[in-house]
């Protein structure tokens, strides 16, 4: 285990230029002790150093390692998951690769120690934008999920959905109510249930038949193998212990068909129906 010298302080922003010799440990400045992984806990060099590092990277490294550091056209590997980069603190490990080259990567005699620390600082500044351990710096692609055929979706809707829904009735304006395309698609595929265990679904009616033949009905609150509770039509609360089939219970799940649909729907049908739902403004 290498021993490292820590300097602690949220506001203290000391940056010690590192030597590129591996045996000299850079001083580690902890800027955020609450961050989850070390690279995120550490302070970054000042903004102007990072900016200079970025400029040097663009000229010297980008063509091989890519503008986003994830690998480039001329065959350099992804630097964001590189062991050499992750093990580096202030250029002391990256610097060795830069000055000596490795494999198909040439050496860079033109970059002096300050340049190396700046390039390393730039690379670390990109890594630090990862939200948490194991995640990647954010990407932002403009993606369109509305790739389906709305006419085919409408035909499917008329066959499979119109027994319960109507475009001019309950689903009128659905795409104005649910603006986000992802949420719109999730909402209809899940029958409105956005996640498992979601209790926001439609009321399930339950009828409980007691041993003496008496019946209690209402909307289901919760049940498992040993218990059932319900709200009666007059607003009262009732609960029952369950033991096998006693008392007998009948539950009407309005989302029963939606659950079956999950096993039947193809991606194409999903995209077509979503394209159709999008037209219901």
């Amino acid at each position: 285990m290498r021993s490292k010298l820590y300097v602690l302080g949220m506001t203290l922003m000391v940056w010690v230029h590192a030597s590129n010799a591996q045996d000299i440990e850079p001083e580690i400045v902890i800027a955020n002790p609450n961050a989850t992984f070390l690279a995120q806990q550490r302070a970054l060099p000042p903004a102007e150093v990072i900016a200079r590092g970025e400029a040097l990277y663009q000229v010297n490294c980008r063509m091989c390692h890519g503008g986003d550091l994830r690998g480039g056209e001329q065959g350099g590997p992804n630097l964001l998951r590189s062991g050499i980069v992750l093990n580096d603190i202030a250029g002391e490990v990256i610097g060795q690769v830069i000055t000596e080259g490795v494999g198909r990567m040439p050496s860079f005699g033109n970059l002096v120690q300050n340049d190396i620390a700046a390039v390393a600082g730039f690379i670390h500044s990109i890594l630090a934008t990862a939200e948490r351990q194991g995640s990647t710096p954010p990407v932002d692609f403009d993606l369109d999920i509305l790739v389906g055929d709305a006419a085919a979706g409408e035909r499917y809707f008329n066959q499979e959905c119109s027994s319960c829904h109507s475009a001019s009735g309950d689903l009128q304006g659905i795409s104005s109510r649910i603006i986000d395309d992802y949420e719109l698609q999730n909402a209809w595929v899940g029958g409105g249930l956005r996640r498992r265990g979601d209790s926001s679904g439609p009321t399930q009616n339950v009828i409980v038949t007691l041993a003496d033949g008496g019946r209690v009905s209402g909307s289901l609150l919760r049940y498992d193998d040993f218990f059932l509770s319900l709200r009666t039509t007059t607003g009262g609360y009732r609960s029952f212990l369950r033991n096998g089939d006693s008392p007998r219970i009948e539950i009407d799940d309005p989302l029963g068909r939606h659950k079956e649909l999950l096993a039947e729907l193809t991606n194409k049908t999903i995209h077509d129906v979503t394209a159709y739902m999008e037209t219901l403004k």
Binding site: R81, S135, V139, F141, N186, R196, G201, L255, K259, L262
Partner: peptide, 27 residues
């Protein structure tokens, strides 16, 4: 799940990244 690709870069993403994953329905 509804599983969406959010990083279509041909180099692939890293770790668990590059997707949006929404649990839907209740079975």
């Amino acid at each position: 799940n509804m599983l969406y690709l959010t990083d279509p870069d041909p180099r692939g993403s890293m770790g668990l990244g590059g997707k949006q994953r929404d649990e839907i329905g209740d079975v």
